[in-house]
Design a protein around this nucleic acid. Structure first.
Length: 519
DNA sequence: TTCCGACAGTGGGGTCGCAAT
DNA sequence: ATTGCGACCCCACTATCGGAA
């Protein structure tokens, strides 16, 4: 059982990236996974992790600065997969004074032993940007093919284990039977179900079908809460554990008259009047690992559950939502459940949406009552609908894109006009909403208006005018106006409008929403 | 000694192109 | 025609280290 050379992975990754055919990608992935399956068992999980575009370590302390000054690539292929993992494990382990230099030495040694192709993959793994056109989902396809397993079995096991690599290791040792035996375990996070977007209530219902429940969409942090006896664990959307940062949620769940439970929900903070706090405040709390007690006093957070996955020995994953919802209502106080209404028609959904927005909620999530919990997939079972705000803004500069946008000016600088001074005030950037045709057009237009440039950016005068959509505004220390657009995207260019006709800073500021009361 | 900038790593996210179905 | 996936990058925030004040 030999070690797998890291160069084999680099070659496989390049092969996967060289074709657009998903079937060919799957084939290439399956081939290398099958090879790895005959090798060192300890390396097998690593191979799958790396093919999925990630390192095993969640934090390594290695980033762009650490990769700034690297030795020339090696010519010999000697590096093994296990050695790469060892290097990043060492880098992750160092801390305290001198750690920057120590990490740099480890990284320098690693890259000094890697060939040019391996450099490419190593960088990709560090930045989680391997750009081979395949990530975890395609790797699951490849894994199923390599080991002759049914794909749905692989997908479900990966969802329940919260890990494709763990699934691979289990599949290798125990085959289909072992994967089928994987169940929900209280205390082990599963991939959360995600919502697909829709433009409005009608579009949402078109995807979800009827009848539905319509949940208020709370603008906080998604959590999965597990309780086994007196032990509670809280996980984020990416399955990071944040239990220690949310003692008040732990207590609330311990107060429930149950012994085992898994809840899915959103954590938000409420002000004195019961209105949700701004996302930035909630985010600050959940990101803080120090001074949790002080933070808790200043900004107490609350759980609003919207799904029940397990209760006292009973898995509810595959039961329809109406069943999960009813069971949840029976065991949770109303104050712990997300604001939710049932709807039978599109008109009702539309009404609830407008209502939610009027109350200041972020929007709604429309959920098919018969759907199971489709974890780890962006399933049509849940559809989110949010209001869209639009402004006509100035495009004052554009940054060169990379990857498939190489050669195009892609990321746009956006500005509104200060109504008192007449100056343009930058409010953020966006690269979203651009078709290839628009990218081509804007690259020509920006270059034709160029007044200066630096390494990444071309600045223009006069500015272009574009209609921009966003979800709202947020406080910003980065931009001179003190605000930044949230989730900005381009709808279209306004060749019919001159830069004098763009929206004012005051107009954008008027968006500032009143948070809704929650009960 | 304290302060502050740079870096790394979290959280939140929308829309496009394309292959496969 | 529809669907799923990956790519494209944004914003704010906290924690940490190392050098400046």
């Amino acid at each position: 059982m030999g070690s797998m050379l890291f160069s084999r992975l680099a070659q496989a990754s390049a092969e996967v990236g060289s074709t657009r055919s998903r079937l060919a990608k799957r084939r290439a992935l399956a081939t290398v996974i099958a090879e790895a399956a005959t090798g060192d068992p300890a390396e097998f999980g690593l191979v799958v992790t790396y093919l999925s575009g990630s390192l095993r370590q969640r934090r390594t302390g290695v980033g762009s600065a650490t990769l700034g000054d690297l030795p020339d690539p090696a010519t010999d292929q000697t590096l093994t997969v296990a050695e790469v993992d060892r290097a990043f494990a060492e880098a992750a382990a160092v801390s305290g004074a001198g750690s920057v230099a120590a990490r740099a030495a480890i990284v320098s040694d690693l890259f000094g032993r890697a060939t040019e192709a391996e450099h490419h993959l190593l960088r990709g793994l560090v930045f989680e940007e391997i750009r081979q056109g395949a990530l975890e989902s395609l790797v699951q396809d490849g894994l199923a093919e390599a080991l002759g397993l049914p794909l749905p079995t692989v997908q479900r096991a990966a969802m329940l284990l919260g890990s494709t690599a763990d699934t691979a290791v289990l599949a290798r040792s125990g085959g289909t039977e072992a994967l089928q035996a994987v169940g929900l375990t209280v205390g082990r996070a599963i991939q959360p179900m995600l919502a697909a977007p829709a433009a409005d209530a009608a579009a949402a219902v078109g995807k979800s079908g009827l009848p539905v429940v319509v949940d208020a969409k709370l603008d906080g942090i998604r959590v999965q809460v597990h309780r086994a006896g007196q032990r509670v664990r809280i996980f984020t959307r990416s399955l990071d554990e944040i239990t220690d940062r949310l003692p008040e949620i732990v207590e609330a769940v311990l107060d429930l008259a149950v012994s085992e439970i898994i809840l899915d929900g959103e954590v938000v903070g409420l002000d004195g009047a019961g209105r949700p706090l701004p996302f930035q405040v909630i985010s600050s709390r959940t990101a803080s690992r120090t001074d949790v007690d002080a933070g808790r006093l200043r900004t107490p957070l609350s759980l609003f559950a919207f799904d029940l996955l397990h209760l006292d020995g009973r898995d509810l994953l595959d039961e329809p939502l109406h069943q999960r919802a009813r069971t949840m209502e029976q065991h949770l106080p109303a104050g712990l459940i997300v604001p939710r209404r049932r709807a039978e028609t599109v008109e009702e959904v539309s009404e609830i949406f407008l209502d939610a927005v009027a109350q200041g909620f972020e929007g709604v999530v429309v959920k098919n009552l018969d759907a199971g919990y489709a974890a780890g997939r962006r399933d049509a079972g849940w559809i989110k609908v949010k209001p869209r705000h639009t402004f006509d803004l100035a495009v004052t500069a554009a940054e060169w894109g990379y990857g498939r946008r190489q050669g195009w000016l892609s990321n746009l600088h956006l500005a509104a006009r200060d109504q008192t001074t007449g100056e343009l005030v930058m409010l953020g950037k966006t690269f979203k909403g651009l078709t290839d045709v628009m990218l081509t057009w804007q690259t020509e237009q920006v270059l034709a208006r160029e007044v200066r440039r630096d390494r990444s950016t071309v600045y223009i005068d006069p500015p272009l005018v574009a209609e921009i959509a966003c979800d709202g505004i947020q406080r910003s220390s980065r931009y001179p106006g003190g605000i930044a657009l949230r989730f900005a995207r381009v709808l279209r260019y306004r060749e019919d409008k001159s830069p004098d006709e763009i929206d004012s800073l005051a107009t954008v500021l008027a968006l500032n929403p009143q948070p809704p009361p929650v009960d």
